[in-house]
Amino acid sequence: MRGRIQLKPLETDIRFTHKALVEKCKSGHSSSQYELYELYVDAMYNIGRRMLNSKEDAEDIVQESFVSAFKNLNSFNYESTFGAWLKRIVINKSINHLKKKQLPVVPMEVHEFHLSEDSPEEKVDAMDIKKVKVGIGLLPPGYKQIINLYLIEGYDHIEIGEVLGISTSTSKSQYHRAKKKLVEIINAL
């Protein structure tokens, strides 16, 4: 009884979501693997689609990510949720895939001096999510990833820096530049 009382606050921690399932998967239980897959596959597939802009590439990357996650599940120690851990694998694999294809993952132009230009707040007529989706779709190569990572995946600039292999300050300036472009596009729609 005492054990259960002590464990309770830990078990309710968000990081331990689907812990029982994850533990079963760690011991190679294949039906648990499928259960976990079903829970996360759509979310991961959508991340892949956003990052890669291709149905086939997204499918390949998500498959690879699940295989890699199940094989390396023992290194998952509940430092984050399972979903966040898996999402990081999908994002890392997507970025590597883009780099292999030599597609830009960050805007190419020089960006350091653009930060001050952002200060006057631009009015955005963008409360319509549909418009935002179209706007993101129209962003030039290299802008899309940083917008996706910050706005939709909810990553902060430290995480984006790690994923894209750039510094935190570069991530900030690149993001502001990309956001400016997005606002321009949405306003022109």
Binding site: Q33, V41, R50, E59, F66, F70, A126, I129, K133, G154
Partner: peptide
């Protein structure tokens, strides 16, 4: 507000459905 609005509605960007059985076949 623009950023907040998008982050709050991020789930609306999940518009695709994965081909579950096809993908699972390859994973397994």
């Amino acid at each position: 507000n623009f950023e907040k609005h998008i982050r709050e509605n991020a789930s609306e960007f999940d518009e695709h459905k994965a081909d579950r059985s096809k993908m699972w076949a390859k994973i397994s």
